[in-house]
Design a protein around this nucleic acid. Sequence first.
RNA 1: GCCCUCGUAGCUCAGUGGUAGAGCGCACCCUUGGUAAGGGUGAGGUCGGGUGUUCAAUUCACCCCGGGGGCACCA
Length: 652
Amino acid sequence: MTAAAGNAPIILTLPDGSSREYLGTVTAAEVAADIGPGLAKAALAGEVDGALVDLDLPITESCQFRLITTRDENEALELIRHDAAHILAMAVQELFPGTQVTIGPVIDDGFYYDFAREEPFSLEDLDKIEQKMKEIVKRDVPTRREVWDRDEAADHFLEMGETYKAELIRDLPAGEEIRVYHHGDWHDLCRGPHLMSSGKIGSAFKLTKLAGAYWRGDAKNAQLQRIYGTAWRDKKELKAYLTRIEEAEKRDHRKLGKEMDLFHIQEEAVGMVFWHPKGWSLYQEVEQYIRRAQRERGYQEVRTPQLIDRKLWEASGHWDKFRENMFTSNADEKDLALKPMNCPAHIEIFKQGLKSYRELPLRMAEFGCCHRYEPSGALHGLMRVRGFTQDDAHIFCTEEQILSETKEFVDFLFSVYRDFGFEEVRVKFSDRPDVRAGSDDIWDRAEDSLRGALEQTGLEFEMNPGEGAFYGPKLEFVLRDAIGRDWQCGTLQLDFVVPGRLGAEYVGEDNDRHTPVMLHRAIFGSFERWIGILIENFAGRFPLWLAPTQAVVTTIVSDADEYATALAEKLKARGIRVGLDTRNEKINYKVREHSHAKIPFILVAGRREADEGTIAVRRLGSKEQQVLTIDEVVDMLTAEATAPDVARQQSA
RNA sequence: GCCCUCGUAGCUCAGUGGUAGAGCGCACCCUUGGUAAGGGUGAGGUCGGGUGUUCAAUUCACCCCGGGGGCACCA
């Protein structure tokens, strides 16, 4: 439509299919007012062909049109948070003149704004800023939008001392309109849209944390001060959010790890885990499960050295591409490195003896203990450590076998995740990174075959550009836990580079020597991280087969001690991890204590049970008791404590 | 690694410029009690490490180590 079409009517098609006609231009606010005064008051913004617009932005062409109110959750939150970020910037500049504003986007659950200021903000400042924001909201400052000339805008912000804003303007795409939003006396460069006044965001917001953040996300740039906040449609939502955060903190694996006596980490071994008996029991259960599963799927388990000569890492390419992350040592005038990965060692095993194509695919697994020098700021409980054990394996195969091996692995991975209770899994495909080994030609082939194999599995996937390993493209498997958080665990990486660099070969059908393709793969990723995820997913209330202590037998009176001891022995003989508590304490006290310890079953013996040959069974999370005979309880516990894979085999 | 923040008993935490306190836990004694805390007594701390200021530092300042929240990193 051209500008001359001023006399042609504009037709707005509403979500219910009805339409409204206007002559000249119209604004979303006017449409709302036309429909009714209630809507005029409730409207936050308009939506024109799927894009949010200011209520007062003139609409000049026919379009699909919708009014946004607080009922439209996603859009309303987006608008409220965006405005909250602006009001935050406004408050900061009122309180701390000379502070530069940069960017302030909406994020999950809230917003942040990055500021440039010499002096750091303190937590007390955060309170002051929040108070000032409330004041600005109360003032209900009206919003005004202006479109500026690019150069004038850049000069203007530069004159104000807002060098970051000026830089942003300079870098905006040529066609982009330069918009400046005024909130009272204050103004900022912004794409919009915004609510019509500061009062519209309501009072359900809160500043949450203070952090450093690099300008444009690059550690080479200046570090800015970021203020995070959360904002919601009403107080009830805000409270629900804060409660949700508290609940997540309660299942923090570091807190539960201490409470449940599973593991600890201390100063003298930063980023490395001391597994306590209970944590190690859990670990062992997980390891034995995956060992059985791998054996079942045709993997051979191996074990390779921790400390390997620099020469091997040079040959594999790690010394060049990965040196910064490797722990090194030195002996016999040789440079040694703790292995950060197992692959070169597995290739060295592959190279022993002449291999035939008939031996492929050869699946070599190792619960390989690796060390990586992670930046101190990256460490996080079990989730990010410097010493960890992978459920690692390398599949040596031909190019033709990539497809079937990929399918087989994906099937394997999903079955394992299901056994641990994870049903929701996403797949990401990562292609060539900037720093890489191997020619573009090889990368083309590797990416094509891995993507092709993935497509054949029928799984949906998203692209993750530039995130591949230095030796090849990879698939990443991301699972969702019980409270909706995503964890990247499994991976499948295709490698056309390293086997060749280390001289791995097999004799083909044609009697020529060929370099095998290698698939690096892991399902848990690392045991440490996997167990951290399990702790948080189950909030420490593990399924019986994983629980470090599966049951405690305890007594009401000491006359039942002998009986309880005999039962505990019997359960132990059947492979149940059972505790015995004959302390001279009241039953209330013991039930409370073992419930807090998240023991799945408390088996209580009093005089009655001892006389009748029964036991009172109390399951964690239930107040009910069930009186069973000894045989019944032994059968029930052994059945429920059976690992899912073993149970499947037994019933087959 | 960078920014902010924290470090006191086994755990959770209070506190002070004059060498420290609670609850839980632990030990011992009394209590034998039927499903989420029975009572009493007692032990336990170089206040993360170092340097400085001070008559005097756990307290104030600076440095280091470690934890937490972010950023960057996650090959």
